[in-house]
């Protein structure tokens, strides 16, 4: 029993130390600028989790992050550095608007169709990068960065010319009432259940199916995967597809499940960077689909709670960003080190 206890303690220690280090360094930063770190952190965490309303806002912020984290986490599981979530998310949002805002369907069906459209468009957008990797061996980092930019400008173009809200230059057509998830309170809507269900489904896929086994095997040891008869093309396709569906859902959740705008702004401001933040979330969640849920809740809490630090303690917005960044990096560090170690091991 003591053996087990030790091993549990050992695996629990890094994140605990990471949290402590992150909070400590953040505190030093606050102290050095003359703020009281205790007040700062209390404002931060009370603002993010201190009341049901706070929880709802924090969860609203974390909803898209849960699924953009899945994109990266599944990629890492398969040994792919898939940073395409950003672009897929834009495309997914456009898909959600196209069906949710431009087509009239009966209630219920409309919501399902719009959500499916978001995921589908996100998934389809994964195909070019996947095919390039499968047939031409183009590295996913290179192709996904480029596809992210293509998606960015393409969606801007769509907002300007095709899914435009006539009379409102600053945003696209909002989702119709029938294509909106019910508001649970504050900015939180029922879409969070869909998102969590998706994460759980991906967990099941990864750990309880043959496909997931192949994917993880390919990620852990490509040579062994080949030996076991795993088809890399299938793994690549599957990985990108899941990534696309997940990020598409993230984009859709910002449209169909985020009041009050229910649409995308012409700057893409309410989408921008959610995909890249997903990488941090995935790293904190140790590239595990369930870990991603909790890490996203934490991330969303920081995103929402930061404003209380600013409002109550007077810490500037930039400093809040820096403190949050330190905490996030400290939390992600164990996983980053693990990945670096593994990459080095593979090279040897």
């Amino acid at each position: 029993m003591s053996e087990r206890l030790w091993s549990t303690l050992r695996s629990v220690a890094p994140p605990v130390v990471a949290i402590a280090v992150g909070l400590f360094v953040g505190a030093l930063l606050m102290l050095s600028f003359g703020f009281d770190p205790v007040r700062g952190y209390v404002a931060l965490f009370r603002g993010s989790y201190g009341s049901p309303e706070a929880w709802m806002e924090s969860l609203a912020f974390s909803t898209p992050l849960m699924v953009t984290a899945i994109t990266f986490a599944v990629g890492m599981s398969a040994g792919l550095f898939n940073i395409c979530a950003e672009g897929h998310m834009y495309m997914g949002a456009a898909g959600a608007i196209a069906v949710g805002g431009m087509v009239s369907l009966p209630p219920g069906l409309h919501l399902v169709a719009a959500t499916a459209a978001a995921m589908l468009v996100g998934g389809l957008w994964a195909l070019p990068a996947a095919l390039l990797k499968m047939w031409r061996g183009v590295h996913e980092v290179v192709s996904t960065i480029m596809f992210n930019w293509i998606a960015f400008w393409f969606v801007l173009y769509l907002i300007r010319f095709h899914i435009t809200d006539p009379g409102r230059a600053e945003r696209a057509t909002p989702a119709m009432i029938t294509a909106r998830y019910p508001v649970l309170g504050g900015s939180l809507t029922g879409v969070i259940f869909v998102v969590i269900a998706f994460c759980v489904a991906i967990y099941f896929l990864l750990w309880h199916t043959g496909l997931g086994y192949e994917l993880r095997l390919a990620g852990d040891n490509p040579d062994a995967a080949r030996y076991a008869g795993v088809s890399f093309r299938r793994v690549i396709l599957l990985t990108f597809l899941i990534g696309g569906l997940a990020a598409g859902l993230a984009g859709g959740s910002q449209i169909l499940g985020r009041p009050p705008s229910w649409t995308v702004y012409a700057t893409l401001g309410n989408l921008l960077n959610l995909g890249f933040q997903g990488i941090g979330v995935a790293l904190i969640g140790r590239n595990h689909p369930i870990g991603a849920i909790f890490a996203a809740v934490f991330f969303g809490g920081l995103a929402h709670g930061g404003r209380f630090m600013e409002y109550e303690v007077g810490v500037s917005a930039e400093m809040v960003g820096a403190i949050n960044g330190i905490i996030v990096i400290a939390l992600a560090l164990p996983e980053i080190l693990r990945i670096v170690k593994r990459v080095r091991a593979v090279k040897e």
């Binding site: 209390v42 140790r286 595990h288 890490a295």
Partner: peptide, 17 residues
């Protein structure tokens, strides 16, 4: 273990809040 950590963390900061 990661899950456990986050649950604990959230409870601590939540209840603490």
């Amino acid at each position: 273990s990661a899950l456990a950590i986050f649950v604990v963390l959230l409870i601590v900061v939540g209840v603490g809040g």
